[in-house]
Amino acid sequence: MEASSSTSSSLRRRAPFRCYCGEKPVLVVSWTPDNPGRRFYGCPNYWVGRKCKFFQWHDDEICERGKVLIPEQRQWIIRLEAKVARCYKREKFYTMALAFLLVICGICFFKCMGS
């Protein structure tokens, strides 16, 4: 009995060959409150206006605790990525300022040496 449940589970997780439109379904991540981070297969035409109703879950259902933790962790990651981007921007500014100062110092040095 356990073997049949694992077989049906693996069959359910495999991407279907074609959706109702005849297209190959794409793997998408849900960010709804009931299914945060849960992956599913959907028709690629759904997002371009052709409303194919094909839908199939790739992942198992998420526990209640996961429904709280996953969005919290996602927000944490978004905040950290924003901090990293600000650091890179600041680093770029400081690098340019340092290069400018080195050029000015070089000019002053050569002017002093030429005098």
Rank of each mutant, 00 (worst) to 15 (best):
E2V: 05
E2H: 07
S4M: 14
S4Y: 11
S6F: 11
S6A: 06
T7H: 07
S8L: 14
S9F: 04
S9V: 09
S10W: 00
L11V: 08
P16D: 00
Y20L: 04
K24H: 13
P25W: 01
V26H: 01
S30T: 04
S30E: 10
W31C: 11
N35Y: 11
P36H: 10
R38V: 02
G42M: 03
C43L: 01
Y46C: 08
Y46L: 11
Y46N: 11
V48C: 02
K53G: 01
Q56G: 04
H58Q: 02
I62L: 10
C63K: 09
E64T: 12
V68H: 06
V68I: 14
I70L: 08
P71E: 06
E72G: 05
E72N: 08
Q73V: 15
R74S: 15
I78T: 13
R79W: 09
L80R: 15
K83D: 05
V84M: 14
V84D: 09
V84N: 12
R90H: 06
R90S: 09
R90W: 00
F93C: 06
L98W: 11
F100H: 10
L101M: 14
L102T: 05
L102D: 15
C105Y: 09
G106F: 02
G106M: 06
I107Y: 03
F110Y: 05
F110K: 07
F110S: 10
M113C: 13
S115N: 06
